[in-house]
């Protein structure tokens, strides 16, 4: 099951500043816990991508693409 709906992904992709809201959302869905949430905010986007790949929420290819193209690529990957 995908973590985001297409509409939610689009909503995140259009945000001015997405990081906190995306992390909050992932936490509410149980994808990340409070500790990882904090770790991501302290360390940045690459930590989020690494963690999602580690948890197999995204593939290695999607993770690589997210690091190249940025978070819009990531949120659509999470909506697949």
């Amino acid at each position: 099951m995908s973590i985001l709906t297409k509409a939610q992904a689009k909503n995140f992709a259009e945000m001015d500043d997405f990081m906190l809201e995306l992390c909050d959302f992932l936490k509410s869905k149980g994808v990340i816990d409070a500790k990882i949430h904090r770790s991501i905010l302290l360390k940045g986007f690459s930590r989020l991508v690494d963690y999602l790949q580690e948890k197999k929420a995204i593939s290695a290819k999607e993770a690589k693409e997210a690091m190249e193209k940025g978070y819009t690529s990531l949120v659509y990957a999470l909506a697949k």
Binding site: F18, M19, G44, F45, K69, G70, Y71, L74
Partner: peptide
């Protein structure tokens, strides 16, 4: 790539 690495966006 640095902005993406940290902020997820260039």
């Amino acid at each position: 790539g640095l902005n993406t690495k940290i902020l997820g966006d260039e």
